[in-house]
Amino acid sequence: MSDDEFDGLVQAAIDGIPQAAIDMMDNVIFFIEDEYEPLPGEAKNTEILGLYEGVALTERDFDWASGALPDRITIFKNPTLRACETRDDVVREVRITVMHEVAHHFGIDDEKLHDLGWG
């Protein structure tokens, strides 16, 4: 799958975020990277499809915004493609991954996301 096609799928998933959620999101930017680079202490073969980096809305206090950088949501192309067999699988997985990472912005943890089917 080309970069442009994958980028389009990620954009479509972002466009599919309910407007009510978009209206509540604050200081978030999206990125697409080819590969996840494991952190020190993680196995070198660690693969994840998406990553939220930031301070969840539920964790912010009154002085949070002072000098805060935007939260980052990164979607990883190659791990996603390796996890999927068909284009339809990629479309579905990108949608799930975008919603999963957005949910982290709202303070929803992995356990709850799995319970809701967004794991």
Rank of each mutant, 00 (worst) to 15 (best):
M1P: 09
D3C: 05
F6G: 01
F6L: 01
G8H: 02
G8Q: 10
G8M: 06
Q11V: 10
A12W: 00
I14E: 04
G16V: 04
Q19I: 15
A20V: 13
A20M: 06
A20F: 07
A21Y: 10
A21C: 08
A21M: 12
D26Y: 09
I29F: 04
I29G: 09
F30T: 12
F30R: 10
F30E: 08
E33M: 09
D34G: 10
E35C: 04
Y36V: 05
P38I: 02
L39A: 14
E42K: 05
A43S: 14
K44Y: 07
N45Q: 11
T46E: 05
T46I: 01
T46A: 06
I48F: 03
G50I: 04
L51T: 04
L51V: 03
V55A: 07
A56I: 03
T58R: 09
T58C: 05
D63E: 13
W64T: 11
A65H: 11
A68S: 14
R72Q: 14
R72W: 01
F76Y: 15
L81M: 08
R82A: 13
A83N: 10
A83K: 09
C84V: 04
T86H: 05
R87M: 13
R87W: 04
V90G: 08
E93D: 07
I96R: 15
V102Q: 03
V102R: 01
G107K: 03
I108Y: 03
L113F: 06
H114I: 13
D115W: 06
G119K: 07
